[in-house]
Write a protein that binds this DNA or RNA. Structure first.
Lengths: 143, 143
DNA sequence: CAGGAGTATGTTACATTATAACATTACACA
DNA sequence: TGTGTAATGTTATAATGTAACATACTCCTG
């Protein structure tokens, strides 16, 4: 047996990886009850904190929720795109964007340490599902 | 008398504008008790929601807190820099950065609607106050 | 192996942030 | 004036997160 903490982190990560959707800490807690019937919030938050500090998971600030890291390399920072329709979260490498952001704030003497870059919108799959991208949409196709 | 709601929003905005520091909704509530002794959380959240939807204030997602908008024009989006040392929050125009972010996520077919770009670090004033940017810093000035 | 320092984990309780749901008031207009 | 609508007030509670302490475990040291 490795340390129990590592087991907990592995279980949390497995839950987050089931779907590319952000889960609140309490949703994770519910999912953990199968394997850990008596788990309490601090254990979940400790595991999430360890995972995020190791870059194996990310907190989606604008959703107050968490996702598994999807990037193999986990470069300095990433962009998270969040579909407002289906909740799908995707991670994008942010190298140049992070540099651009750092450059903008450096104009006032600010030195960057940690970036939060999140985009809300509609994912490709939901865009494809939409009846039409124009008009009010109540009348079906505009044809 | 204008509508009471506008008065509330004006009061909230005045509180946020006192300092360029993010205030939690409950800090705002405390500050409002002078003018509105019996105020309750929903009134504060409604005022903050109206202000943010009009672009007169911003929610700092990574701090769960709110700041007054500092930009006269309030372009489509902005970058917020947050000093970890003093809490100072500064707003930066983000035009090109927003385009770059949208471009990155568009590579997977994602259409952007709303951007959250926040940078944590150290502001110019705190950088200037720091004894030295090297070593552990316990020994005072390196001179 | 006993003792004990130090760390990790479990547990309780609570703090903080946010909103649902309904009551009340204000206002426009027939 | 009555009445429908929207805005605001109020109560209660949901959702998120953490402090503080208890317990257990690990690994030394003698």
């Amino acid at each position: 047996m490795t340390t129990p903490g590592e087991q907990m982190q592995a279980d949390v990560l497995a839950i987050l990886r089931r779907r590319n959707v952000a889960l609140s800490a309490y949703k994770v807690l519910e999912a953990l009850r199968d394997a850990h019937p008596k788990i309490a919030p601090p254990a979940v938050y400790r595991a999430l904190s360890s995972l995020t500090s190791k870059g194996q998971a990310h907190r989606v600030e604008s959703l107050k929720a968490y996702v598994a890291c999807q990037s193999k390399v986990h470069a300095s920072a990433s962009i998270l795109s969040i579909c407002e329709s289906c909740g799908y979260v995707e991670e994008h490498l942010a190298g140049e964007v992070v540099e651009a952001v750092s450059h903008v704030v450096a104009e006032t003497g600010f030195s960057s340490q940690h970036h939060v870059i999140e985009v809300h919108g509609i994912c490709a799959a939901c865009n494809a599902r939409m009846p039409a991208p124009e008009g009010v949409g109540a009348g079906g196709s505009p044809q």
